[in-house]
Each structure stands twice: as C-alpha cells, then as structure tokens.
C-alpha cells in the first residue's frame, strides 16, 4: 500500500512538472489544473484494482504530456496579454526586476 502511495505521489509530481513545461499559457494552466483535480477526485480511492487502472491512465497521460510539451517548445508563439505582468526597472544581473510602484494614481 505504501508503495502505491509512493508511485502515485511520484506520478503526480511528474505530471505537474511536465505540465509546467507547456509553452502555451492555456494548455499549461489546463494541464496543471486537470492533474490536480483528477488526483483530488480520486484521493480516497481504496479498491486496489481501480487504483492500478487509474495509475496506468496517469502514466499514459504523462507520456503524452512529455511529447507534447517538447513539441510546444518548438512552436512558440508570443505570450498572451494575461501572462507575466511583471513590470519595472531591471536591477543587477540575471534579469532581476525591481518592481516600481506606479505613483500618482492613489
């Protein structure tokens, strides 16, 4: 039982890790959300057979995710207007951003 929990945790971590690698914002957010919701939905699953089937499904999805995230890196678009939103002056090196407060509005 403990072994299954370990496998499930590792699968969950991998799914989230690869979800984050989508270049496209909408797919990235969806993959993260869907993985999280799927694990949350089945977190109290007890039947060993069902758990095994679900883990196999997750493994299949992880493979798809690995292939598709790599593909999405090759065909990147400009980012959406809702992404990022960090604005300010660059300070130091490595692209650190010191956020400047927009004064005069309040």
């Amino acid at each position: 039982m403990a072994e299954t929990a370990q496998t499930a945790r590792s699968l969950y971590r991998n799914l989230l890790r690869y979800s984050n690698r989508f270049a496209a914002y909408n797919f990235r957010e969806y993959a993260k959300r869907r993985s999280r919701d799927a694990f949350r939905e089945h977190q109290h699953e007890q039947d060993p057979k069902r758990i095994k089937a679900l883990l196999a499904l997750g493994d299949k999805d992880l493979k798809v995710l690995q292939r598709q995230t790599m593909l999405s890196r090759y065909f990147q678009m400009d980012r959406l207007v809702v992404e990022g939103q960090e604005t300010g002056q660059q300070k130091g090196h490595k692209g650190n951003i010191a956020r400047l407060k927009d004064t005069g509005w309040d």
């Binding site: 678009m77 400009d78 980012r79 207007v81 809702v82 992404e83 939103q85 604005t87 951003i97």
Partner: peptide, 9 residues
C-alpha cells in the same frame, strides 16, 4: 524598463 507582458490576445 522590462515589460514582462505578452502581446497576443
């Protein structure tokens, strides 16, 4: 100034 914002609708 860095504008860390995309431009795609």
């Amino acid at each position: 100034t860095i504008m860390d914002q995309g431009a795609r609708p």
